[in-house]
């Protein structure tokens, strides 16, 4: 496991939220799967959206692979995101969804298909390559979302409660598949969840959001490391 410039460093992060301030200082080295635990509304999804560039922080720096990216637009950050509800594009089929990131990077159609085939086979989706994503089950949609986020080899993978809408058995299966994929593509991962089981199964590092009260009476929430396994 390497560390330092290869992974993600968040320094002096501060964001004023509705009713509280969120602060964070942490790093995730290359190959590490970090899980951020917290209750609903605690600010974990906001932190993830700031890292992805979708929202802006009030202060702090985000360094990925040795490069400061706080002011970089989301499309140029090289960060793969798996959203809570997958956010697949209903107008595109499975193959087109899975290879959308490659298409945006100018990869030709033949190459895209050649690159995606092994991924789809590996996750059992090769028979539905050209099916509409609206015809897929919840688990299948989540698998397409994983492929879409990883296939173009991002420098960081962010997962926003990716298993929350699935039943227990499917969650277990997908956790194993995610671990398997991560072994092959060991990018730093940050997964936010409120589910302790997800954290137990996937985390190499755990973070949590702790609450304290500042002198002015405004609630302060801070991301702290829970323990490393």
């Amino acid at each position: 496991m390497s560390s330092g410039k290869e992974g993600l460093q968040v320094r002096g992060f501060f964001k004023k939220m509705d009713g509280f301030d969120l602060r964070a200082d942490f790093e995730i080295p290359q190959g590490v799967r970090a899980v951020l635990l917290g209750k609903s509304g605690s600010g974990k999804t906001t932190l993830l959206r700031v890292l992805a560039g979708i929202e802006k922080a009030d202060a702090g720096s985000v360094v990925l692979g040795g490069k400061e990216i706080s002011q970089v637009s989301p499309k140029d950050r090289d960060i793969g995101v798996v959203f809570q509800e997958q956010a697949l594009f209903p107008a595109l089929d499975v193959m087109e969804n899975a290879t959308f990131g490659l298409r945006m990077r100018g990869v030709s159609r033949d190459e895209r298909v050649a690159l995606a085939d092994p991924w789809l086979k590996r996750l059992g989706l090769h028979k539905q390559s050209f099916a509409a994503v609206t015809q897929l089950s919840g688990g299948e949609r989540q698998r397409v979302a994983f492929i879409r986020a990883l296939i173009w080899k991002p420098k960081l993978l962010l997962l926003d409660e990716p298993f929350s809408a699935l039943d227990a058995e499917l969650r277990q299966t997908l956790r194993l598949e995610l671990l398997d994929l991560h072994k092959q593509w060991p990018v730093p991962v940050l997964l936010v969840t409120h589910d302790a089981e997800d954290a137990q199964a996937l985390a190499t590092v755990k973070f949590q959001i702790e609450t304290s009260r500042a002198a002015e009476g405004r609630e302060q929430r801070v991301v702290t490391q829970a323990f490393s396994s």
Binding site: A52, G53, K75, V81, A87, F89, F100, M104, W152
Partner: peptide, 8 residues
């Protein structure tokens, strides 16, 4: 957001 994070 997803499209943007994928480079669109």
């Amino acid at each position: 957001d997803a499209a943007q994070s994928l480079g669109a």
